[in-house]
C-alpha cells in the first residue's frame, strides 16, 4: 500500500531523512517510533503530500507522489498534532465543510454516523473552540475518517489527551484497523503503540533502524528492544 525508496529530506543543511526505505502492506497498522527530531513527522508530512522530498520515490495505493498527489489525497485520512478544525464553526459544520471538500455523497447521513462513532452527537451544534483538547482530537479523527480513507496517517494522536480521551481514540483506531484500513502512526508512548500496532518500525538517524512484528515481541519486551536499537544506532 505504501512504498518509499531512498527518501531524502533536508531542512537547510540539516539532513532529516537520509535515503529512507519504508514499506507498508495493505491492512497493516505500523507504529513509527523514535526519539524527538528523528524525522517521524517529516516522513508523515511527505506521505501526506504536504511536503516534498529532495529525492527518492513515494508510492501510495499505486499512485506516485508528488505527481499524482490529488489521487493520493483522496485515499488518505490524516490526524496531526493540531486538529485542523475551525474554532468558529460547530462540530457538524466542520465535518460538512470537509465532506464537501472530499465530495462525500449522502453527507448529512455520513456526518450523523461519524459523530455517533466519536461520541459527539450531543455536541454537534457546539462551536469547536468550546471543546476540550480530547473532544477536538476525537472530532479530528472524525474529520479524518469522514471520507472512509484507505490509509490513515496519525502523527502523535494521543498527545495531550487524558485517559478517557485516549481510550475513546484507541476504540476508534481499533475500529479503523478492524476494517482492514492501513494505518501509520507515530508515537512516543510505547504502551499505546504496543496495544494498537501490528508492526513497530524504529526510526533513527533518518532511516528505519529496525522493524519488528507484534507477533515477534511481547509488550514488555518492546521497551527494551526500542532502547537497545536507539542506543546502538
Amino acid at each position: 500500500m505504501i512504498k518509499v525508496r531512498r527518501l531524502v529530506k533536508r531542512y537547510g543543511s540539516k539532513p532529516v531523512l537520509r535515503g529512507l526505505d519504508f514499506d507498508v502492506l495493505s491492512g497493516e497498522f505500523v507504529a513509527l517510533l523514535g526519539p524527538n527530531g528523528v524525522g517521524k513527522t517529516t516522513l508523515l508530512r511527505i506521505l501526506a503530500s504536504l511536503s516534498k522530498p529532495m529525492s527518492g520515490e513515494v508510492f501510495i495505493a499505486g499512485f506516485r507522489l508528488p505527481s499524482q498527489a490529488a489521487a493520493v489525497r483522496r485515499r488518505l485520512g490524516v490526524v496531526s498534532h493540531q486538529p485542523l478544525l475551525y474554532g468558529d464553526l460547530t462540530a457538524e459544520e466542520n465535518l460538512r465543510f470537509y465532506g464537501r471538500m472530499y465530495s462525500v455523497s449522502n453527507l448529512e447521513n455520513r456526518i450523523d454516523k461519524v459523530l455517533a462513532l466519536i461520541g459527539l452527537s450531543r455536541r454537534r451544534r457546539d462551536l469547536v473552540r468550546t471543546f476540550s483538547r480530547g473532544m477536538q482530537q476525537r472530532l479530528a479523527i472524525g474529520r479524518a475518517v469522514l471520507h472512509d480513507p484507505e490509509v490513515m496517517l496519525l502523527d502523535e494522536p494521543h498527545t495531550g489527551l487524558d485517559q478517557d480521551a485516549c481510550a475513546m481514540l484507541n476504540h476508534v483506531l481499533g475500529e479503523v484497523a478492524a476494517r482492514g484500513r492501513t494505518v501509520v502512526m507515530t508515537s512516543h508512548d510505547l504502551s499505546v503503540a504496543g496495544n494498537l500496532a501490528t508492526r513497530f518500525d524504529i526510526l533513527s538517524h533518518g532511516k528505519i533502524a529496525a522493524s519488528v512484528q507484534r507477533s515477534e515481541i511481547d509488550p514488555d519486551g518492546l521497551m527494551a528492544y526500542y532502547r537497545k536499537i536507539v542506543n546502538e544506532v
Partner: peptide, 30 residues
Amino acid sequence: MSDNLRDSYQVTNPRPLTNFFHAVWAVVWK
C-alpha cells in the same frame, strides 16, 4: 468500523470542473 458506518455513502469523483466549483463554494461558505 461498525457496519452501519459503512453503508450508503461513498466519496464521489465528479467531473473535475464540478469538483473545483464545489470546493470553491465550500471555502467561501466556510
